[in-house]
């Protein structure tokens, strides 16, 4: 087995193990720490495939932004009360169905090979030789071939930000009056 595949299996084990720990911990902060470990593992997988830019952004956005905010909220929750309560709501069955469906979908792709996801006009996959220009390649593809989806995602986020501000402002006005 080459070093590359050893690295892949180690990182995959880290991601899956951490993910399992995340959903089985009773203490929410512990769950969050395991989730961080899973996200670091995913960044490692990106790095081992030569997607340096994605790995960096994965850590900055998911860990530096999203997980910090998660922890910010979780820290205000009394953990001891939380861990004695029943964790799962009545949505057990819909959740099971969704999980099984997702598993079947991923398994279907895994069996048929990644090639079935190809579509005309898709960007060329980056070979190992183009590593040194990884960030530039991502930027070029994002702002030429995939400009419309990129801008749509930006507008979606902008709407979400404005929505959040509007919601927090209206609540303030009600409490003041």
């Amino acid at each position: 087995m080459s070093l590359d595949s050893v690295l892949f299996y180690v990182l995959a084990a880290l991601v899956l193990g951490s993910a399992i720990m995340t959903i089985t911990r009773r203490n929410v902060v512990h769950a969050a720490v395991w989730l961080i470990s899973a996200l670091v593992g995913v960044a490692g997988l990106f790095l081992s495939r030569g997607a340096e830019f994605l790995a960096g952004v994965q850590v900055i956005v998911y860990i530096g932004g999203i997980m910090v905010l998660f922890l910010f909220v979780i820290m205000l929750v009394p953990v001891h009360d939380e861990s004695t309560q029943r964790r799962f709501s009545n949505q057990k069955w819909p959740a099971t169905v969704a999980a099984v469906a997702l598993f079947l979908w991923v398994a279907f792709i895994a069996v048929n090979g990644v090639g079935m996801l190809d579509h005309p006009g898709m960007a060329e996959p980056l070979g190992p030789g183009s590593l040194s220009e990884n960030s530039e390649a991502v930027g070029l593809v994002l702002f030429s071939q995939y400009l419309l989806p990129f801008e749509l995602a930006s507008i979606l986020l902008l709407v979400a930000i404005i929505g959040a501000i509007v919601m927090s402002k209206t609540r303030n006005r009600e409490t003041e009056s």
């Binding site: 902060v29 720490v33 961080i36 670091v40 960044a43 340096e52 830019f53 790995a55 960096g56 952004v57 850590v59 900055i60 860990i63 530096g64 932004g65 997980m67 910090v68 922890l71 910010f72 820290m75 590593l131 040194s132 220009e133 990884n134 960030s135």
Partner: peptide
Amino acid sequence: DVNIGILFILAMSSIGALGLILGGWS
């Protein structure tokens, strides 16, 4: 001298912030 040197520093500093947050909570 990696191609994402600056991103790497920013990423490490954002993980480092978690140390402060978790340490204070624990």
